[in-house]
Simulated scan of single mutants.
Amino acid sequence: MKFPEPLIEGRLVKRYKRFMADVRLPDGSTVTAHCPNTGSMQGCQPPDARVWLSPASNPARKLRYTWELVETGPGQIACINTARPNAQARAAVEAGRIASLADYGTVRAEVRYGDEKSRIDLHLSGHESRSDAWVEVKNVTLCEDGIGYFPDAVTLRGQKHLRELMAQVRGGDRAILLFCVNHTGIREVRPADHIDPAYGELLREAASQGVEVMAWQAELEAGGEPSGSLVLVRELAVVL
C-alpha cells in the first residue's frame, strides 16, 4: 500500500469529536486534519506526538489533510487510518505474500454475505484445490508491553463478524480473521479480554470451530522515517 503523495510531519495538539485532530506544522501554524478512526485509539494519541498527514487529492475538500501515522513511543509508529488495512491485506494477498491465501484467481472486496447482512472485506475464489475463502480484516494498534490487543473498545460489530465467519466454515468454505498489525512495536497479538471479554470468548470459539486466525505486521517499506508506504511483511503469533 502506497500513499499517493508524500506525508507531512507535524505535532499532535489534540483529537476531538472523534473525527478531527489539530496538528501543529513545522512552520508553527496549526491545521485541522480528518481523523479516520472511530475507535478509542488507546495509546495512539500521546500529547505532542509526532504525526504524519496525507494531503487531500480533492482541493475542494473541507479538511485539507488526513491523519495517517503517529509515533506512539521511541522508534514505534502506528497507522491509525482504518481505511488502510483492507488495501494492505488485498495487496499482500494479490502479491502472494501470504502463502495460505495465495493462488486464488479472483479477489473481491465488500461482498455481501451471511444471515446478519454483513460485508466481507475480501472474498477469494477460483483456487484449483481450495474452497472459497472469506477474509475479515481487523486493524491492530493497541500495544501494551509489546503485545498487540484487539479490540481497543467493546465491539458488537466485531462479534457479529465472528459469528458470520463461523457460519461460512459450517457451510464448507474457509473463513479467515486477519489481524493487520499497524504498529511497529507489537511482537504478538492477543484478544483484549480486559476490554471486551465477550469478544475474546467468541474468538476462541471461532478458532475451535475452524476459523483461521492470523496476524501480519506492517513495516515501512523503505525503513526509518515514514516514507509514504506501509506493507505487510511478517507473520506474528496469535495467542488465544
Rank of each mutant, 00 (worst) to 15 (best):
V51W: 00
V51F: 03
W52H: 01
L53H: 00
L53P: 00
L53Y: 00
L53E: 02
S54M: 12
S54F: 05
P55R: 14
P55T: 05
S57H: 13
S57D: 14
N58R: 04
N58F: 04
P59F: 00
P59C: 04
A60K: 15
A60G: 07
R61A: 15
L63W: 11
Y65N: 11
W67H: 06
E68P: 09
E68N: 04
E71K: 05
E71H: 02
G73K: 08
G75F: 11
G75E: 09
Q76I: 15
I77W: 02
A78R: 03
A78D: 06
A78F: 03
C79T: 05
C79A: 13
N81M: 05
T82L: 09
A83G: 14
A83R: 15
P85I: 01
N86L: 14
A89T: 09
A89G: 03
R90H: 08
R90W: 01
A91E: 14
A91M: 06
R97D: 14
I98E: 03
I98K: 08
A99D: 15
A99M: 09
A99P: 08
A99Y: 01
L101F: 12
A102I: 06
A102V: 07
A102T: 03
A102N: 07
Y104M: 12
Y104R: 01
G105A: 10
G105C: 04
G105T: 09
T106W: 11
T106V: 14
V107I: 04
V107H: 05
R108C: 13
R108E: 15
